[in-house]
Computed example of a mutant assay.
Amino acid sequence: MSAWQQIGGTIAAEFSDLPDLVELTRVCIRLLIAALLGGILGFEREQKGKAAGIKTHMLVSLGSAIFVLIPLQAGVQPAELTRVIQGIVSGIGFLGAGTILKADTEDRVRGLTTAAGIWMTSAIGMTAGLGHEASAVLCTLLALLIFAAMPRLMRLIEKE
């Protein structure tokens, strides 16, 4: 075997995590859905003038999806996957904490909804990455409903 054949074989082996068209399609669908759903939530936040917008939400969702997808491809056991999920949730907590600002007055805190939205976006990304795309879509729709309906409901309550 020539050196070039060895190099070619090594390169092919390094890209063997997507061995066929079925697996490539499965990975693409999960990652694209995660990014799309994150983008939908990010678009809503960006339209409201919030600091974390489309790109942030897309990256959070996509990152969370790949963090659970790769261990699944590697064949990790469910107990090990729960540790991966715990790590993602902790890491996202730090990211979300960066969006929370305390105002000058003692009772005014800003960014909690953005932090919660980032946390939810990560959960949606993990859900898509695990192959539960319908559940991820449902969670996205519920989050959009909360973003849209709760401010209106709170204004109604405050008027009374």
Results as ranks from 00 to 15, higher is better:
residue 107 D to M: 10
residue 22 V to L: 09
residue 80 E to C: 10
residue 8 G to V: 00
residue 154 M to A: 13
residue 142 L to Y: 02
residue 101 L to E: 08
residue 156 L to T: 09
residue 124 I to S: 09
residue 21 L to K: 14
residue 2 S to M: 09
residue 11 I to V: 13
residue 36 L to I: 13
residue 19 P to I: 07
residue 81 L to M: 14
residue 142 L to C: 12
residue 25 T to P: 01
residue 37 L to S: 08
residue 114 T to G: 07
residue 28 C to F: 15
residue 159 K to P: 00
residue 140 T to D: 07
residue 103 A to Q: 12
residue 158 E to D: 02
residue 144 L to W: 10
residue 114 T to R: 05
residue 81 L to D: 11
residue 135 S to W: 14
residue 31 L to I: 15
residue 81 L to S: 10
residue 139 C to K: 12
residue 48 K to L: 13
residue 11 I to A: 06
residue 16 S to Y: 02
residue 122 S to K: 03
residue 135 S to L: 15
residue 153 L to T: 02
residue 2 S to I: 05
residue 71 P to I: 10
residue 27 V to K: 01
residue 27 V to T: 07
residue 50 K to D: 00
residue 70 I to A: 13
residue 155 R to I: 01
residue 102 K to M: 15
residue 146 I to Y: 10
residue 57 H to A: 11
residue 57 H to T: 11
residue 57 H to L: 10
residue 66 I to K: 00
residue 20 D to P: 14
residue 31 L to P: 03
residue 1 M to Q: 14
residue 102 K to F: 15
residue 59 L to F: 07
residue 80 E to M: 12
residue 66 I to F: 10
residue 128 A to L: 05
residue 140 T to Q: 10
residue 129 G to V: 07
residue 155 R to V: 02
residue 2 S to A: 13
residue 46 E to D: 14
residue 105 T to H: 13
residue 117 G to T: 15
residue 30 R to K: 12
residue 128 A to T: 06
residue 32 L to Q: 07
residue 85 I to T: 11
residue 60 V to H: 02
residue 42 G to P: 00
residue 137 V to F: 08
residue 134 A to E: 07
residue 149 A to R: 01
residue 73 Q to H: 13
residue 34 A to P: 06
residue 131 G to W: 01
residue 63 G to V: 13
residue 145 L to G: 12
residue 27 V to G: 01
residue 12 A to H: 05
residue 42 G to R: 01
residue 84 V to Y: 05
residue 3 A to E: 11
residue 98 G to V: 09
residue 100 I to L: 05
residue 11 I to F: 11
residue 109 V to W: 11
residue 66 I to Y: 01
residue 160 E to D: 10
residue 75 G to W: 07
residue 96 G to C: 04
residue 134 A to H: 09
residue 143 A to I: 01
residue 125 G to W: 07
residue 155 R to M: 04
residue 90 S to Y: 06
residue 108 R to G: 04
residue 154 M to C: 11
residue 74 A to I: 09
residue 105 T to F: 02
residue 11 I to Q: 05
residue 96 G to A: 03
residue 33 I to G: 00
residue 140 T to S: 08
residue 78 P to R: 04
residue 159 K to I: 01
residue 98 G to N: 04
residue 156 L to A: 12
residue 78 P to F: 09
residue 81 L to T: 08
residue 75 G to C: 03
residue 86 Q to C: 01
residue 51 A to W: 03
residue 69 L to N: 01
residue 50 K to A: 02
residue 106 E to Y: 15
residue 78 P to M: 03
residue 38 G to S: 04
residue 130 L to N: 04
residue 93 G to T: 07
residue 4 W to F: 14
residue 112 L to A: 06
residue 36 L to T: 14
residue 138 L to E: 09
residue 61 S to T: 04
residue 42 G to F: 07
residue 7 I to N: 08
residue 47 Q to G: 04
residue 5 Q to E: 15
residue 153 L to F: 09
residue 113 T to C: 03
residue 141 L to I: 06
residue 152 R to D: 01
residue 134 A to P: 02
residue 138 L to A: 14
residue 88 I to S: 02
residue 109 V to L: 09
residue 125 G to C: 10
residue 83 R to Y: 13
residue 48 K to N: 12
residue 124 I to F: 13
residue 29 I to S: 09
residue 1 M to N: 14
residue 51 A to M: 11
residue 150 M to S: 12
residue 81 L to N: 09
residue 38 G to C: 01
residue 45 R to N: 08
